[in-house]
Design a protein around this nucleic acid. Structure first.
Length: 934
RNA sequence: GGGCGCAUAGCUCAGUUGGUUAGAGCGCUGUCCUCACACGACAGAGGUCCCUGGUUCGAGUCCAGGUGCGCCCACCA
């Protein structure tokens, strides 16, 4: 037996993990027979971004997922936990760019070019992967490394392309010229979810375009006004009705505009002047108005967030701020500015980088969420194959039908609310790191359509301009925007033949060009549950299909929209299955003051540091106990240290038991309960096993953990082990309880339990040993009641000793009377003989110099001899009498209420009566005690 | 502007469908280095369950309103 007085996880954990891994049992195919017969149970690990290292949020997710997997594995399910990482497209590319800039490059992408730059990104991603895998191991995660996946590996790329193809064929992926969110800093589009709003103060200016223009308008974005093509007013607005339908041609800061006055109910007549300058190119709302009234779209801001030549030579190339103040000055000079007001504004900024996001009209790829399509799948209850539905409907259906349940439930509301507001999803990104869009353009088709060879068109800036280039050269030139009409077709690899013009790639030139853009990282992430299980590859998907739908998706609530919703969309569409039965959302891990952990605040707690200092088990406990789903958790090093203390406690309980067990006796099967304490602890253990298992099934991990900790510490260690030391002969019983306890703790703290397990003399790993079953026949309410009386008395005696400052070595005499409980006491007080020696007082009264101790109706006398302090005892009794009298009074008033007696359930009333009786008896006894002191 | 949540001991939080004198951990006070553990043992102090009103025999729990805090969504220009 090699159990040190203090448990040192350092060094042991890696070795234990290595043994688990070598056993092969992280892989469901190598699990014992009992699991092979079991129900499949699968969790897909949310793949962390390959951007460096794991943080406490990841650690929390892993702790919960490993808990679930270990719990279900021990219960005999065929458990698969698939680990993986996410290429995270923009996040990783930005990270690498930042590193390269720090290393001295000015514009890494320009300096390195696409291929060289990508090499650097891939290299960084690989290093990150290695770091994260090792951190995942440190946490004790029992995931199947033989099935490790990467959102950007060859098979996932294949799945992404297949999915893209399906959606393209179903008309759900479309190229469109629309207003998109443009990040001028990283020169890429963003999805709506990647745009945040920042509260800023802005100037709301009221002005007219020129002195002949009859209507004043207000704006915070003066610079966009070069692109105005209309002024919209409410159709019922009497002030402006007479202008509706008229066209004006004001000269705005040197640029001649063509402004149509339109009536549109979307305009709020009470805001500002009640007239709205319509800028269709740079505002989604304006674009909608423009569409209703067939207005022209005139872009005036370019991708570099500078003014386009259309604004006139005076403004072309100026930044937004420069333009804004210049225009304001010009308007002031001309006397056109009527008012300047400071207002609060929600400025759209990029989630990554924080630069203001511009809205520009561009040609991009979109997923159409509201467009009806013909369903390919025949597995959904609501729609048959061949019926029409929309992606939005599928998303709603998965949760509405209860096939996916979100924990905590309130996030279902949030989810539906988000779906309501969901617009088409822009999926093309102008970054280099990611799944290249599998669409190709045929120059032959394009040439035939336009009548010239190798031509391109730029649509940024509204008018189409044609550009001649050398073959193949243009698509790396970011300044040229290819326009693709009928020439576009899907191909996973380099196409050999154009499906339309049947043109072959023969002459060594490059007639086919792939779309230079890549896919939004969430496109591939959305396919995670099924792509990671081998879809669409026939063999792979067939082999893994038993695991789909997966059991639980465990992730942070911050990516419900980014990821969870999109997984539901993609999976239901592509496979006809909902991706997971339960979504368990954990909160954000914050510092002890509730602040986000960040580098600038220097308040980051690193999981690996904590594991090295306190062990993985303590770190896991600190993340799971004391946190509830969907709520943020405050973490501090002290909290982790506290759980380290507990792991040490469990270690020492085990140490005591294992050091004292005599092997011969411990071999006895079905150890029998001999004493009250034995019956009590077995009853408690079995009740606990039942409640604890139920709590885990209900995802109440914190509650389960607290329950088990309280049992382990306050019942087993503080009472039973102490009693066992004196009563003796409990080796087999103790060992059996310990074994059960190790099982129950294993999902929370796999390392220390497995380590102790090595010493209990069982074969095989605890990790796959069978989960304890609660036995009803062991649950023994009368014994629990009797034991609790004993506990109350012992506590009362200790209390008295402490209150009267009785020296620890002083032996006291405890006189019991004849009666059922007193007989029980005589039998069971032996373990507490150091507190008091019990004597049978027959039916005699209280000895002189003794105080009366009352516990749950049992009255005994503790002889304090000369140490009694009558004043103190009197004060104590008076205090207690006051409190009990109050309780009696409240019970009497309740029972005196006729309505209560008539309307409350009989058992409640009966319970109150009984309580009143007991309290009255106690009160009488206390008063008698007090009188006897006088 | 719309939506969601939170408010319980000094701190961090539990408190299931309304029903004991509202609980835990940490911290605090006192005693003890008792042969598993001082990362420990024993005992103790500490609460107007944010406020107001309502429903009910009964409210920390349900309803309405208010206050304070947090989050999400949203291009009234």
């Amino acid at each position: 037996m090699n159990l040190d007085p203090q448990y040192n996880p350092q060094g042991k954990e890696d070795e234990i993990y290595r043994q688990w891994e070598e056993s092969g049992m992280f892989n469901p195919d190598h699990l014992p027979e009992r699991n092979q017969q079991g129900e499949p149970y699968c969790i897909m690990m949310p793949p962390p971004n390959r951007t460096g290292t794991l943080h406490m949020g990841h650690a929390m997710g892993m702790a919960v997922q490993d808990l679930l997997i270990r719990f279900e594995r021990m219960r005999g399910k065929k458990t698969l936990w698939v680990p993986g990482t996410d290429h995270a497209a923009i996040a990783t590319q930005v990270k690498v760019e930042q590193i390269l800039i720090k290393e001295g490059m000015k514009d890494p992408r320009k300096e390195l070019g696409r291929e060289k730059f990508l090499e650097r990104v891939i290299d960084f991603a690989e290093k990150s992967r290695n770091t994260m895998v090792s951190q995942t191991r440190k946490m004790g995660s029992s995931c199947d490394w033989s099935r490790e996946r990467y959102t950007f590996d060859a098979e996932r790329n294949r799945a992404v392309y297949e999915l893209f193809k399906m959606m393209y064929e179903d008309g759900l992926i479309e190229r469109g010229y629309r207003i998109v969110n443009w990040d001028p800093q990283f020169q890429t589009t963003l999805s709506d979810d990647e745009v945040l709003t920042k509260d800023v103060r802005a100037k709301l200016l009221t002005f007219t375009y020129d002195k002949n223009f009859p209507i004043a308008i207000s704006t915070t974005r003066l610079e966009t006004k070069f692109g105005d093509t209309a002024v919209a007013v409410h159709p019922d607005d009497e002030r402006y009705q007479k202008y509706i339908g008229k066209i004006f041609e004001p000269v705005f800061c040197g640029k001649k505009l063509s402004i149509t006055i339109v009536g549109d109910a979307a305009v709020d007549p009470k805001f500002g002047t009640g007239a709205l300058g319509v800028t269709p190119a740079h505002s989604m709302i304006d674009a909608e108005i423009a569409e209703r009234h067939s207005l022209a779209t005139v872009p005036v801001i370019g991708k570099d967030a500078r003014m386009l030549p259309e604004c006139g030579s005076e403004f072309a190339g100026l930044s937004i701020e420069e333009t804004r103040s210049k225009v304001q000055n010009m308007l002031t000079e001309q006397g056109l500015l009527q008012a300047v007001e400071e207002i609060a504004q929600a400025l759209p900024v990029a989630e990554r980088g924080g630069a203001p996001v511009e809205q520009l009209p561009m040609e991009q790829w979109f997923v159409r969420v509201n467009k009806p399509f013909i369903l390919r799948q025949d597995t959904l209850e609501k729609w048959k194959k061949g019926q029409q539905t929309t992606l939005k409907e599928l998303m709603r259906y998965a949760v509405e039908s209860g096939q996916t349940r979100i924990v905590p439930e309130r996030f279902e509301k949030i989810y539906f609310h988000w779906i309501e507001n969901l617009h088409d999803w822009c999926i093309s990104r102008q970054i280099w790191f990611g799944h290249r869009i599998p669409m190709w353009y045929c120059h032959e088709c394009e040439s035939k359509a336009i009548g010239r060879s190798f031509v391109l068109a730029s649509r940024i800036g509204g008018a189409t301009s044609l550009v001649e280039t050398n073959s193949g050269a243009w698509f790396n030139d970011a300044s040229k925007e290819p326009r693709f009409g009928s020439s576009v077709f899907y191909s996973e690899k380099y196409p050999l033949r154009c499906p339309r013009c049947k043109h072959d790639d023969l002459g060594g030139q490059i007639p086919f060009v792939q779309d230079p853009d890549t896919l939004d990282t969430w496109f591939s992430a959305g396919a995670w549950t099924f792509s990671a299980l081998g879809w669409p590859d026939e063999g792979g998907w067939r082999a893994h299909r038993i695991y789909h739908p997966t059991a639980v998706l465990e992730t942070g609530y911050d990516i419900v929209f980014f990821w969870v919703a999109r997984m539901i969309l993609m999976t239901t569409y592509a496979t006809g299955q909902i991706p997971f039965r339960t979504v368990y959302l954990h909160g954000m891990v914050r510092d002890d003051q509730g602040r986000k952990m960040s580098k600038s605040l220097d308040n980051i707690i690193n999981p690996v540091d904590m594991i090295e200092k306190y062990g993985a088990d303590a770190t896991r406990l600190s993340l799971v106990i004391g946190s509830t789903p969907g709520n943020d958790v405050k973490l501090s090093e002290e909290k982790i240290a506290g759980f380290r203390n507990f792991t040490n406690k469990l270690w020492n309980i085990s140490r005591y038991i294992l050091l004292n067990v005599k092997s011969a006796e411990s071999d006895a099967k079905n150890p029998k309960a001999r004493t009250l304490a034995d019956r009590w602890i077995l009853s408690r253990l079995n009740t606990l096993t039942k409640d604890y298992t139920a709590a885990l099934e209900a995802y109440q991990f914190s509650r389960a953990g607290e329950m088990l900790r309280d049992f382990t510490w306050s019942e087993l260690a503080d009472w039973y082990v102490e009693i066992a030391k004196v009563e003796g002969g409990k080796d087999a019983l103790l060992l059996s309880i310990l074994k059960n306890l190790l099982h129950l703790w294993h999902p929370f703290m796999p390392f220390v339990t497995e380590e102790i397990w090595k010493t209990v003399g069982e074969k095989g790993a605890l990790m796959v040993d069978e989960w304890p079953k609660p036995e009803k026949k062991m649950m023994d309410a009368p014994s629990e009641k009797d034991f609790s009386i004993l506990q109350s008395l012992v506590v009362a005696i200790r209390n008295a000793r402490s209150g009267f400052s009785v020296p620890p070595k002083e032996l006291l005499r405890l006189t019991v009377r004849s009666g059922k409980f007193d007989a029980l006491l005589l039998e069971n007080m032996e373990p507490f003989k150091r507190l008091a020696r019990v004597v049978d007082g027959g039916f005699g009264g209280k000895p002189k110099g003794a105080i009366t101790i009352l516990a749950q109706g049992v009255e005994v006398y503790l002889d304090l001899g000369g140490m009694i302090d009558l004043g103190k005892e009197k004060a104590r009794l008076e205090k207690e009498i006051a409190s009990v009298s109050q309780h009696v009074a409240s019970l009497e008033s309740r029972l005196g209420n006729a309505d209560f007696v008539a309307r409350a359930p009989a058992e409640i009333v009966e319970g109150e009566r009984k309580k009143l009786e007991e309290s009255k008896a106690r009160l009488a006894a206390l008063e008698a005690q007090l009188n006897s002191l006088k």
